[in-house]
Write a protein that binds this DNA or RNA. Sequence first.
DNA 1: CGGGCAATGTAGTCAATGTCAACATCGAAG
DNA 2: CTTCGATGTTGACATTGACTACATTGCCCG
Lengths: 204, 204
Amino acid sequence: MSTSKRARTDYHHGDLAGAVLQTAGKVLEEQGVEGLRMRDLARRAQVSHNAPYRHFPERESLLAALAAEGFAMLGRAQQAARTAGDLRAMGEAYVAFALAHPQRFRLMFGGTVRIARHPALREVATRVFDGLAGALEREVRSTGARDASVAAWALVHGLAQLLLEDKISAAARGGRDELAFARDVLSAIRFVIRPGAPGTPQAD
Amino acid sequence: MSTSKRARTDYHHGDLAGAVLQTAGKVLEEQGVEGLRMRDLARRAQVSHNAPYRHFPERESLLAALAAEGFAMLGRAQQAARTAGDLRAMGEAYVAFALAHPQRFRLMFGGTVRIARHPALREVATRVFDGLAGALEREVRSTGARDASVAAWALVHGLAQLLLEDKISAAARGGRDELAFARDVLSAIRFVIRPGAPGTPQAD
DNA sequence: CGGGCAATGTAGTCAATGTCAACATCGAAG
DNA sequence: CTTCGATGTTGACATTGACTACATTGCCCG
């Protein structure tokens, strides 16, 4: 798998952007964001230290691309879970994604990438979330359930984060492995929409 | 406030550790973790570029100290809310803390500090969380409510995180300011312990 | 009271890194 | 065939975290 797509001269790489993004993904999952060095990626692609900058004008551009990829993955996982099961399945899929790609998840939500500066990223992210919120609201079919759906999402997201950062004491986990624990936690409560809930305040 | 405590010679600073930690806190809140440079802190303390290393052997030690400070603050906020109100007050205080100190919160939960390498930090963090969980369980007084209390915490934590990272669409927020929105979201659901919940699986 | 020691601060150095500017090479379009 | 835009290369620079060796200080103990 050495010179896979190196079709042309070998002055031009053929698909540097793709190659860099791919190995960046690997490095990310292995070493975390801090371990991502532009020059290292150049080395791995057998290319001069500055070549990657043709495709990612600054380091953060690369991070943004990686985060965008992550949101795309998360979106697909959610879709799959949604067609295959109910709300709880979607929640479990969310947590499962975070546990399967911890560093990617951190990159997506850690605030390292200033999202405002990366419209493409912003767009993927909001699309995924809008889809998610839509599915939630539809499941919970009830007017004024928008706030409740945010709560559901927050619950799942927070659980993922706390598990990732190892903030839940062993005592609370009680020996269960992470995914089983998550399942139990999500099952431990019933989500009841409050009657007088504000929902969407200004009716449109 | 220039040479506040510079009691001694002015070769020795008097309280470099404290000074560095303090200005590091300011820089953190203004510029985020990435903006924290050891050498810059040295400059601000009017001290050689290496002096801070006497107190924080590596950059991450400083970050750990800052995070520890953060957990202490959070702990106090939780205590205050707990004596002053109910569960919901504690939840709101949690979110309020995150919104008031976004960068600090990110540092505490962003996975930048490898917590395993900083026992002191680990200890403060777990103490705060154990206190939190304890309070929750006591409030929800019910056997097998441990998982439910984790859920409550996850909900609040996730909500804080999503607000911080600006991941909640304007449509969902519906014009409410962040804190009011958080309040509404937390009020939108009722937390009902599930009858057949596993709780602590292996009874001890 | 005085000497020495541990704590604290300084000076100098090094390898990495992100980023910029100027130049080289290539493929394709006219 | 020429020219041009895209892609890669070379070289340079400032900054940073970290290491080592050395200086200064205050304080403890005899």
